[in-house]
Design a protein around this nucleic acid. Structure first.
Lengths: 198, 198
DNA sequence: CACATGCTAGCACGGGTGTGCTAGGCTCTT
DNA sequence: AAGAGCCTAGCACACCCGTGCTAGCATGTG
């Protein structure tokens, strides 16, 4: 088996263990068993537990990035923005699980130092993405007004993600998309007015 | 020593361990040592680890509630709203640590079932608080429009909290308050217009 | 005074943990 | 055919885990 595929398989086993038993249950033994390999094999790829956990976080971020790059650009920048945001929010069970793993790994950053950097990177990437979306919608990028709007959009997305995470799995989520739509119209409507206070 | 004080002392030791070594390091032994007592004494108060962790979460929520009830109401509802929101956001190191512990405990809810309920309660209480604030600012409570504004405010607060958590400890946070101020003016200005899409 | 109750301190057990190390096998190159 | 390199499988060690249990000590009550 390809080495990268093996690493991915083990990282996915880490996610499964986190979802089933919490992050405290992530050990080389539980993860190896979940992946269907013996401990020795796992340790041949990831000599220590820290490397295993850190890679599982990095792979998760990489997967999200790929997914975002794969969303083809629409003609309408607004439709594009909605498609992107839909890819970031935990709207379906898969993405909800992804978000849950993300939170758990973030909470372990005191124990695995590398996780802090991964979390920071993810946050900065999302900030950059928001800035790009605002630039598309308003036509102006880099201005103080655009930066303020981007920060606001970013905060709203993170907050909505947190809310969706607290909802039961099958419940109605249209309200979240309504809020996103409202914010996008506000951003487009405020292009050039330069108001920090909206 | 008073029994409740002892329980609080142990719960605070749990928080310290989480901040220092991550939630995976929370065990009866590490917590007892951090609190300066022997394991037997801890187990006399909390017979099992789950009870210890769950109580530490409940106490944290209780402390926040007390803090919110203690903020005296201003004449201006808007000033009051700002004061309340300042008490919820992780703006200073103490509250930041509190937020970090909150996240860590939330991530352990797969391992300690009681934590799920605590997290849900906290989320609902914050939702209720936002609804009350919107009611104060717009004068109308219970209408669909007010509910929508409250949900939006709630999402924004959670998102800002997440952002502040990602900032370095001493960095500038005025932008967060600016965003809050902007949202509050928007809420007050939109009273009665009934627009779900802002 | 005696006595009961609650707290402290600690031992012991079975089990899980990370990691160092070695031996066997499989595949691929020369 | 022969050897080299990687991978699998597993043993072993020292340590930490939650929890059951007991013995001593303090403090308040009759």
């Amino acid at each position: 088996m390809d080495r990268d595929a093996r690493k991915a398989q083990l990282a996915e086993a880490v996610w499964q263990v986190i979802l089933d038993q919490g992050v405290s249950a992530v050990s080389v033994r539980t993860v190896a068993e979940r992946a269907g390999v013996v401990v020795g094999s796992l340790r041949h790829v990831f000599p220590t537990r820290s490397e295993l956990v850190q890679f599982s976080a990095e792979l998760m971020m990489e997967r999200v990035t790929e997914r975002l790059l794969a969303t083809e650009s629409r003609d309408d920048p607004r439709e594009y923005a909605v498609a992107i945001i839909k890819n970031v929010l935990p709207l379906d069970p898969d993405r909800r699980a992804e978000y849950e793993v993300n939170l758990a790994l973030l909470a372990e950053r005191a124990a695995v130092p590398g996780l802090q950097q991964v979390g920071l990177d993810a946050h900065r990437r999302l900030a950059g993405l928001c800035a790009r979306l605002v630039g598309m919608l308003t036509g102006e990028a880099g201005t103080p007004s655009a930066a303020s709007l981007a920060r606001r959009l970013h905060a709203l997305i993170d907050g909505l993600a947190f809310h969706l995470f607290h909802q039961p799995v099958g419940s109605d989520v249209t309200w979240a998309l309504d809020i996103v739509q409202g914010e996008l119209t506000a951003i487009a409507g405020e292009a050039g007015s330069g108001g920090v206070s909206r």
